[in-house]
Design a protein around this nucleic acid. Sequence first.
DNA 1: TCTTTTAGTGTTATTCATACGCTAAATGAG
DNA 2: CTCATTTAGCGTATGAATAACACTAAAAGA
Lengths: 221, 221
Amino acid sequence: MPETEYPKPSVTTDIVIFTIRDEQLQVLLIERGMPPFEGDWALPGGFVDLSEDLTTGALRELEEETGVRDVYLEQLYTFGNPDRDPRGRVITVAFFALIPSERIELKASTDARDARWFAIDNVPALAFDHRAILDKARARLVAKLNYSTVAFQLLPERFTLSDLQKIYETIRGEPMDKRNFRKWVQSLNVVEETAERRSAGRQRPAMLYRMKNPGEVVIVR
Amino acid sequence: MPETEYPKPSVTTDIVIFTIRDEQLQVLLIERGMPPFEGDWALPGGFVDLSEDLTTGALRELEEETGVRDVYLEQLYTFGNPDRDPRGRVITVAFFALIPSERIELKASTDARDARWFAIDNVPALAFDHRAILDKARARLVAKLNYSTVAFQLLPERFTLSDLQKIYETIRGEPMDKRNFRKWVQSLNVVEETAERRSAGRQRPAMLYRMKNPGEVVIVR
DNA sequence: TCTTTTAGTGTTATTCATACGCTAAATGAG
DNA sequence: CTCATTTAGCGTATGAATAACACTAAAAGA
């Protein structure tokens, strides 16, 4: 049976792009400029190019929307409910991405549509099943905090240990013990001191660190 | 932009079906009856029906191949390398399933093609990128042993704690301490004693247990 | 110089994971 | 019938990882 015997679904990729802004976990949404769900907010995404790997396509979308390259991107889940899209059968391969706060100024530069960051707890109603996708991405992120260094991908190149702790507290929504956190980070052996310190206002300046292997995410425990 | 502007890939589901037979972790493979890769072994799977959810489709495939229903099924990963299929662009949503050893007699009853169980360490060369899919499924299974009760899905309805331990040892490929294992299982609070014991040969009979909630997989630790 | 603010550091208690050896109950052999 | 063999079933002690907890240091601004 040749493949052409089978009707084909459309296939898209959608990306949940997280960052930390204003001490909040935020997500990038696009205002839809056409039906269905015209005027609603949605996750950035698009149809897969037939010559392109899924991950490559997602990276391309990501760069189109945010202007950034070389960010953390992970396949999340594939959503294929037959009536998730009123236009017909559309299967979407969802990804999630983490962008360091420093690199988000370039957002939506190449695209005419309205794109905005929303605090995760203040997201409007979303098109399609994008709320379910977002929820799943958030759950995955929270779960991974416990056993990997993914969250380090939200850091700028130079950072203090307090910066890093604040990221964890922001995503978890609860404070952590400073001494235990610092001991844990040091034990991972993935960051190193730089020669610099950061003076931010009228307080003791903090040591700046950098990652030993910036793109690397390690599984721990 | 209507969806019809975009060329569509074909979409399939493939399933890595695991069981324990002869104290080995085994996987069900199908001999391909047509090109490409005619005569090679491959994972069971098929094109997605446009009216069917991905998981539902995978369950249908699973029942067609093995005759079993109500088994553990989990979406694994979506493979979309543009040249993974010589016929053109075919994206596959891969699943993995766990079937209790007792229920596998019915295998391949409804399908004319040759279907066989292979020990995981004795799998022949596979069609397409199915070797990569299989490897990923196995890695996922091994990882989940540590923090969930998935492996309990390989048990018959009544089982001894030694049966369960043997499953863990078979998948991990290394022995475990009997007392610690039993303490761990008891602490999970997901199994209960039955009134029966099993006498198997010339040794002390073992207490038979059952799961409190047979289909349930809990995340632990 | 004094107040405010964040940075930075060790020790103890608790919890969890690991290591380890003997008795019990059945069967089959002699 | 008793003895040997085989698997079932159980508790404690040690080490490792995690969690709780409070003060001093350095800078800036008043």
